[in-house]
Write a protein that binds this DNA or RNA. Structure first.
Lengths: 113, 113
DNA sequence: ATCATTAATCGTAATTTTACGATTGATATG
DNA sequence: CATATCAATCGTAAAATTACGATTAATGAT
């Protein structure tokens, strides 16, 4: 049953706020930033060489990939014995739009302090 | 002395990758997203009412503010017995530019998988 | 069928994050 | 000066993150 103790009440944040935090959190590690850049740059979506490219243990990379997959920013398809990862363009765009919108709230410059 | 053990080698990631991760990490919690939105929306930069607004303990908010201050996204000035927080427009813009540039790497759409 | 390769998962450890209440230090106000 | 108010900090605790090596499961090749 496990009453949620110190946890955030359901209604404390808006869905938008949670979404923004979720996406940015996924970007909040240099390894994941690098993985995404690598996936963009190697137009054909390479897979296990990510491990070589980044220079972290295979299991660690797997974890980071899982994280990125969880937020939907990437996807992987099995290809023989290896897995081919690539950007999920739809969700990437969704994130982009959401964050750019968030960034644009500064349009009314407010000088203070 | 403390030899860095499992830590990331200095050169594993570029400065840009680290910067991106740093900023996004700072955005990676709904409370901090909400705080930033609140600071934008209340044009005059209000301070302790952030606590009321967000609905977390005062010490917790203080921690989140510290985090945001650390990345330079906000700044606070003492005003009598209270502290007035507001967006640091310069650094906010820096972050915006950095991330928007990061987002734009998708311009060459790559269909795969 | 055996073996090699690849990537996910497991088990674990260290560190960081998040949250809270209590305390402290600073500044107003009586 | 005494007292109230505000926000930072301290001390904890619980949970999440990050990293690794070892194991496992799946596939391909011999």
């Amino acid at each position: 049953m496990k009453a949620k103790l110190k946890t955030t009440p359901e209604n404390r944040f808006t869905e938008e706020q949670n979404q923004i935090a979720l996406f940015t959190k996924a970007l909040g590690h240099p390894a994941r930033v690098k993985i995404l850049q690598y996936l963009f740059e190697t137009k054909s979506c390479v897979c296990g060489d990510i491990v070589d490219e980044i220079g972290l243990a295979q299991s660690t990379i797997s974890q980071h990939l899982k994280e990125l997959k969880k937020t939907g920013l990437i996807q992987g398809t099995v290809e023989g014995t290896s897995v081919c990862y690539c950007i999920n363009n739809e969700n990437w765009t969704k994130m982009k739009d959401l964050l750019v919108e968030f960034f644009e709230q500064d349009l009314i410059k407010t000088d203070c302090c």
